[in-house]
Design a protein around this nucleic acid. Structure first.
Lengths: 237, 237
DNA sequence: ATAATAGTGTCTTTCAGACATTATGAT
DNA sequence: ATCATAATGTCTGAAAGACACTATTAT
């Protein structure tokens, strides 16, 4: 076993390395995570993250590898994702010393189509407050999901990460509800509107959402969908 | 090559994995990083981070591995460190696909004693604005250091990370100067004092630093040295 | 007219920034 | 008395929280 340049690693140089994407969305007013029912050991029969080994030949970088895993499960090419943390140790996987780099991916549920390639395995959006029904998850995936949502929670008090959950056109109430779901508490509508509108990141489409029996709400679009706004002030936690 | 449980990884399952600690301190009013002059290839003769391969037998977890590397170079057992990010790809190391997890460690310079074990190699605190003298650094270490200091910079606008640069007893001016060094700009003394003192994280030792020909400054200690305070307001960048 | 949600206006609180002013010790 | 730095006081401005109030649609 040699590398391309002839370097021969010793017995202790190799280890199991995998990438675990925590793909989150909002569905039916619930924060959901995409899980896969494992058909092969280890942990077969249990639900887990759609992660796995990095393919040295197919993937050019870690980000590449995540992009491919997310694409494979969601059919989405240009999703937002960001690295959360890396954990490694002797006790994480009973096959031996292993390392896992965790990514958080935020997607809009309506754009997702489960890929044909994943038909053979069971893939499902699980509301994060219904995970108790399928515990234990594979490996340390439960802890990974908790840590990732904690990270999301601490980041939305100063940034507009929930933008990635929104469809093309959305109302300020929909956006505020995304924040509320993640923070797990009500947010005052008035200061929230000020905050978002003053940030100058939205475009008024002059269309309205009027499928209900009350005053219709204005639909907005994001000026730029590829950069996350950082606010000056912070929401209190 | 089998693991303890008999799992046989395929040719594509292993990769080179290393941990790279960016050990920072403040010395002579300069932000410095601890570098090692590499005596062995690859990159021999160049300065680089004191990182390296994880030893599967010696280290129980990633954090373990960092702790040991920092201890080895600084002689310090209980230093503050935190994970920054992980980068991996085919082009990072000419020996093949490799992954590196970067940690930031903040230490008080006066407590550091370069360990006897590192006598054979050259170890040195390099002021980060004098790195131009020793470029290029090994591998991508220059970029890693920049990214780490950027992370430090964005974190100190809302947290008290520079506490880890302080000696046991210190003045508010010393602490403020640490912030100023990292941010690269002056900070108003009055709001800084308010911010720190209102946070209720310091103990007034009722001692004074009086080796200069002016009004002596009060010496403070931290109430807790193991947790980093998060402020409500943010410094402007 | 009513219900229900969208959207505005205003007052308070918190905290950073700016800057003037006072305090204290060495010489 | 002077100098230099420590420490305080005060005014301003930005932005969140609370909450009352107005606007708009379907029924």
């Amino acid at each position: 076993m040699k590398t391309e340049t002839g370097f021969t690693p010793s017995k202790y140089d190799w280890l199991l390395f995998s990438v675990d994407p925590v793909i989150l969305t909002i569905q039916n007013n619930q924060l959901c995570v995409l899980l896969v029912k494992r058909s092969l050991p280890p942990c077969s029969g249990q639900w887990g993250l759609p992660g796995g080994r990095v393919d040295r030949l197919k993937h050019h970088s870690l980000d590449d590898s995540v992009r491919e895993k997310v694409l494979l499960k969601t059919g989405l090419h240009h999703t937002f994702f960001e690295q959360v943390y890396t954990e490694g140790g002797a006790d994480m996987d009973n096959r031996g010393w292993s390392v896992s780099t965790v990514y958080m991916a935020l997607v809009n549920e309506s754009k997702v189509s489960f890929s044909p390639k994943s038909n053979s395995e069971e893939v499902k959006w699980w509301p994060i407050n219904q995970l108790t029904a399928i515990l234990p998850l594979a490996f340390w995936h439960q802890k990974i999901i908790e840590t990732t949502i904690d990270r999301l929670r601490t980041k939305i008090v100063y940034s507009d990460l929930p933008m990635h959950f929104m469809p093309e056109k959305f109302t300020l109430t929909q956006l505020r509800q995304a924040y509320e779901l993640i923070l797990g508490k009500r947010i005052e509508s008035s200061p929230f509107r000020r905050r978002i509108l003053n940030a100058d990141i939205l475009i008024d489409t002059h269309e309205q959402l009027s499928d209900v029996s009350n005053r219709p709400a204005t639909l907005y679009r994001y000026k730029a969908t590829n950069c996350v706004h950082i606010f000056n002030g912070q929401l209190k936690i």
